[in-house]
């Protein structure tokens, strides 16, 4: 049974439909990457898992049970954690406070988990009392991910985690993603840096104009000439509405 499954979902914002029948699956233990040109609806597809937009058709399943159009605050409580692309940390709170807020939903003692997160992200342990807004881009991303991991989620959703980071940090982030996955958390990731993302992906989906275009294992997609033309040499695809 897939951890997360989108079954032919249609939806968008207001009267604009952005997703025209998107399907994808995340199997236990997998890293699944969604790539595509600007405006393809990648982030929108991810947001639909989290209940951030209205789906008019299709279903979203968590461990086989439907969670279609469930509001975000409830989806979180079911064990799905989402790291948005921007505004993903509480700037004026310290690193530690950010992580504490990540654990807001938990009723139990989260201190052990906190220590685990610090082990996973050593720079954060050093700067735990520092205001999160003063950290570098890469460290902020660590805070954002660490915060999401405080709930020991069933699955982690990452929206373009390497956006705006220098190449050096991109590599670090991807390696962190692999580590997190190695510790047992499946990951659904939207990425603009298609090539690098696919190298760590178990499964990949290519979305164009709100629809599935290609799917396959990370390696297969990397070696597919059509995919290569689209991203790895061809540049941007035509037009498209704003990616939600």
């Amino acid at each position: 049974m897939s951890v997360i499954e989108l079954q032919s979902v249609y939806g968008g914002y207001g009267d604009t439909e952005i997703l025209h029948g998107v399907s994808l699956k995340v199997e236990p233990g997998e890293i699944v990457v969604v790539i595509g040109p600007n405006g393809a609806g990648k982030s929108t597809a991810m947001k639909s898992v989290f209940g951030l937009l209205h789906l008019t058709k299709g279903e979203v399943l968590l461990d086989g049970a439907p969670i279609t159009n469930t509001p975000p605050e409830q989806v979180v409580r079911k064990g799905v954690c989402y790291v948005p692309q921007t505004e993903n940390i509480f700037q004026s709170l310290t690193v530690e406070e950010n992580l504490e807020m990540g654990a807001y939903v938990r009723e139990d003692d989260f201190k052990p988990r906190l220590d685990e997160i610090y082990e996973l992200f050593p720079p954060l342990a050093e700067k735990r009392k520092q205001s999160a807004g003063t950290l570098s881009g890469g460290q902020r991303q660590m805070v954002a991910m660490g915060k999401a991991l405080m709930l020991e989620p069933k699955i982690l959703l990452l929206d373009e985690p390497t956006a705006g980071l220098s190449p050096k940090f991109r590599g670090e982030i991807f390696s962190i993603v692999k580590t997190i996955n190695g510790l047992g958390t499946p990951i659904l990731m939207v990425e603009q840096n298609a090539k690098q993302a696919l190298t760590i992906a178990d499964q990949g989906y290519v979305l164009v104009d709100g629809q599935n275009k290609f799917a396959g294992s990370g390696r297969d997609l990397l070696e597919d000439p059509e995919v290569a033309e689209m991203f790895l040499g061809g540049g941007k695809a035509a037009g498209g509405e704003n990616d939600g």
């Binding site: 409580r77 948005p84 505004e87 509480f90 406070e97 807020m101 990540g102 807001y104 939903v105």
Partner: peptide, 24 residues
């Protein structure tokens, strides 16, 4: 206090607070 930190968190970003599961 937890609620106080939640207030500061929500002051920073109401959207993120919601995503984090904070009881808005």
């Amino acid at each position: 206090t937890k609620i106080g930190k939640a207030m500061r968190a929500m002051s920073d970003s109401p959207e993120l607070a919601r995503l984090t599961g904070i009881d808005t």
